[in-house]
Simulated assay, not measured.
Amino acid sequence: MHNDAILSVKNLEKQFGPGCSTCHNESTRKLEKNYCPQCGTVYACRNISFNLFPGEILGIVGESGSGKSTLMQCLYFDEAATSGELILNNQEFQEENVLELSSQQKRYIRNYHFGMVYQNPLKGLKMDFSAMGNIAEKLIAAGGRNVAEMESIGKTLLEKVHIPLFRMKEEPKRFSGGMQQRVQIAKALSNNPPILFLDEVTTGLDLSVQASVLDLIKTIQRELGISMIVVSHDLAVIRMLADRTLVMLNGEIIEEGLTDQILEDPQNPYTQQLVYSLL
């Protein structure tokens, strides 16, 4: 593990399907994009390695189907990785591969160390709980028992993400898409996680709403110093948020570097195409 990294991923693989004699062997594997035409196995993440540093926003960009959302699901334990290592730089899990921990320990990590904001708020929120109830749910999962204290944390967070407090008892199903994303962000922040995952959080939002959500993410990162991994197919989002960027294609990282460097001087033909489509 890189000594300064808060999180290290090594050789993470995720495949959907059993694989066959044609695609089992990496050196002779002939895939169409990331799909084996013989047996239908999809190699969604192939040999993914990277570090995340304290207070850094790491961007992961790639087209739909490139494996970036699957990678996030593996990191947040929504999906079980096929193989690889995930190391947290933390006294409790010193040098342990947390991908191999029990489901109970993974739940603990999700409750205390990670926050997640999904592309679809339905995944991250209970639509028939109140906005406040959603935040309380996460706090209770992380051991919160004091109602007054949870309410005070909830109010502070809702104010931070610009949800008017007179609406805190309302259910997110009555909110606009941008407001739902902001409640999700408040919920993800409620346990004060050192690491926040954001998966395509502005997809489907109007441009003005997108801008306010991105602005909010940037402000939170500055104020709280949280490390973030931001996944997007939109380079404009990555340009605004990310310090460093990984470019994914067909389940693999094909380029990585400082975001400015990747945008100004992309090396890989695919990245060049992405960047020129932004100009």
Rank of each mutant, 00 (worst) to 15 (best):
M72H: 05
K68A: 09
M248K: 00
K68S: 09
V61K: 02
E100W: 01
G257C: 07
F50W: 07
P121C: 13
I217R: 01
Y76K: 01
N134P: 07
G154N: 11
S212T: 15
N3Q: 14
G178V: 02
A44M: 08
Q94R: 07
L224N: 11
T259L: 06
C36I: 02
S227V: 01
H162D: 15
I140L: 00
S152F: 08
L122R: 14
S208R: 08
L224K: 08
D78F: 14
A186F: 12
F77P: 02
E96P: 01
M228Q: 05
M150C: 07
V275D: 01
L241G: 05
K126D: 09
R244G: 11
K138P: 00
G40W: 14
Q273C: 05
I254L: 07
R46E: 11
I140P: 00
F93T: 05
N111S: 09
L224D: 05
S103M: 07
N146D: 15
G154T: 15
H162N: 15
G225I: 14
L71T: 02
K160C: 09
T259W: 01
N34H: 14
G115T: 01
K14C: 12
C23L: 10
S130Q: 10
K126Y: 13
I109R: 00
E171W: 03
N191R: 02
L139A: 06
T28R: 04
K126S: 13
E137L: 14
L165A: 11
S176K: 04
S69G: 07
G62A: 01
I135H: 02
Q184M: 15
L165Q: 13
I185A: 03
I60A: 00
L278D: 00
S64M: 11
R239W: 02
K187H: 02
F197I: 05
Q184D: 10
G19Y: 12
P194A: 06
Q119T: 08
L58I: 13
S190N: 05
V98F: 02
M248D: 01
Q15R: 15
E85H: 12
G225Q: 10
